Simulated scan of single mutants.
Amino acid sequence: MWARHQWVGEPHTDAEYRGLAALLQENRITDVFFHAGPFEADGTVPAAKYRYAGALAKAVHRYAPGVRVQAYLGQIRKVEGKGGIDLDDPAVRDRVLRTDAALLDLGFDGVHYDFEPIYPDDGAFLTLLDATRALTRSRGRVLSVALEQPTLVDAAQPVYKALLPRTGPWHYPPRPTDAFLRKVAARVDQVAVMAYDVSLPTQSLAGWHFARHTRRTLELIGDQVTVFMGVPTYRPTMDWAENLTVALRGVRRGIGELKRPPKRPYGVGVYADWTTTPAEWARYRATWLPPATEKVGR
């Protein structure tokens, strides 16, 4: 589950922490990506922005033992001179790592990156993942990353690259190719695929979208890394077909189309805690939660 910044940026009562823990346990949430950023352009995050992160981590560990508390960090990636953070700069990457270390010191169980856009030739991003993994593994923590849904046709990417810029209204889509997705999976513990925002006109097409990306992603990297397929509880702009039930059923369908289960655990990532109503949590439990013996989300 992706969770709002207020959990780390504002004070909360013990009752509020207990309520959060109860929600996590009732819905069998294994990992929570608490927004702790975004990064400044120089790779830092002012400590005042996450002044209550330590209290949050301590409370979740106390009231929901076993749930991993991850620091959700990201920024708009500087591309072709536009954007926020320049990951090509080694000094910026070093400050990102120091920020990660400071948050791990506060009790976070892992680091969750969401840099956008990430293109499939982004060597600096892979370099950052290598360095971050060394940090998280040295602390016994996890590294996860959010990525856009993979390409539909890898062969189209050179055409996009040749004809379209990487910025502007008509741009080369930042979709990971099969090869790039495997490179990322080899460097992290978890991959969360942001499969939402499908912008398709019917529920059947939206369900097909989630099924296809679930099956393909698990076939590609499900033996390497834990995979979470992102499902929405917000109301997408200009989208009449996408909702939580359609997404969950699509993910279930994609899993059912696999020739065999992945070797690593898999699950869904709920986006997001601040948009999910009690009715949607009930729908999630009825539609998604597996028997306790099924490997999901670990």
Results as ranks from 00 to 15, higher is better:
M1Q: 08
M1T: 15
W2R: 07
A3E: 06
R4P: 10
R4M: 06
R4Y: 11
R4G: 12
R4F: 11
H5P: 11
Q6K: 10
Q6E: 15
V8F: 13
G9S: 14
H12A: 12
H12F: 07
E16T: 11
G19Y: 10
L20C: 00
L23E: 00
L24M: 07
L24Y: 08
Q25M: 05
Q25A: 09
N27P: 05
R28V: 06
I29P: 00
D31T: 12
F33G: 13
F34R: 02
D42N: 07
G43D: 06
A47G: 15
K49E: 12
G54F: 13
G54Q: 05
A57I: 01
K58R: 03
R62S: 08
V67Y: 14
V67S: 14
R68S: 06
R68H: 13
G74F: 02
G81R: 12
K82I: 10
G83L: 05
G83W: 01
G83T: 04
D86P: 04
D86H: 10
D88Q: 02
D88V: 07
P90N: 12
R93T: 04
D94T: 08
V96F: 01
R98K: 14
L104E: 01
G107K: 07
D109R: 01
V111F: 04
H112D: 03
Y119S: 02
D122S: 07
A124R: 03
D130E: 09
T132I: 03
R133E: 10
R133I: 07
A134K: 15
G140C: 07
V142R: 11
V142G: 09
L143E: 08
S144N: 13
S144E: 15
V145Q: 00
A146L: 03
Q149H: 15
L152G: 13
V153H: 06
D154Q: 01
A155F: 10
A155V: 04
P169C: 07
W170I: 13
P174S: 01
P174N: 14
T177H: 04
L181E: 00
R182I: 06
A185V: 03
A186E: 14
A192Q: 15
M194W: 00
A206T: 03
G207W: 11
H209S: 07
H209E: 02
F210I: 11
H213N: 07
H213W: 08
H213G: 05
T214K: 03
L218D: 08
G222K: 02
D223V: 00
D223Q: 08
V225K: 09
V225F: 03
T226I: 13
T226D: 14
T226H: 11
V231M: 12
P232K: 01
Y234G: 13
T237L: 13
M238G: 08
E242I: 03
L244D: 07
L244A: 07
R249Q: 05
R249D: 04
G250K: 09
G254F: 01
G254K: 00
I255F: 10
E257H: 10
L258E: 05
R260A: 12
P261K: 12
P261A: 10
Y266W: 13
V268S: 02
V268I: 12
G269E: 06
V270Y: 12
D273R: 10
W274T: 14
P278Y: 02
A279K: 03
A282G: 09
R285Y: 09
L289C: 14
L289Q: 14
P290A: 05
T293F: 11
K295I: 11
K295P: 13
K295Y: 08
V296K: 08
V296C: 10
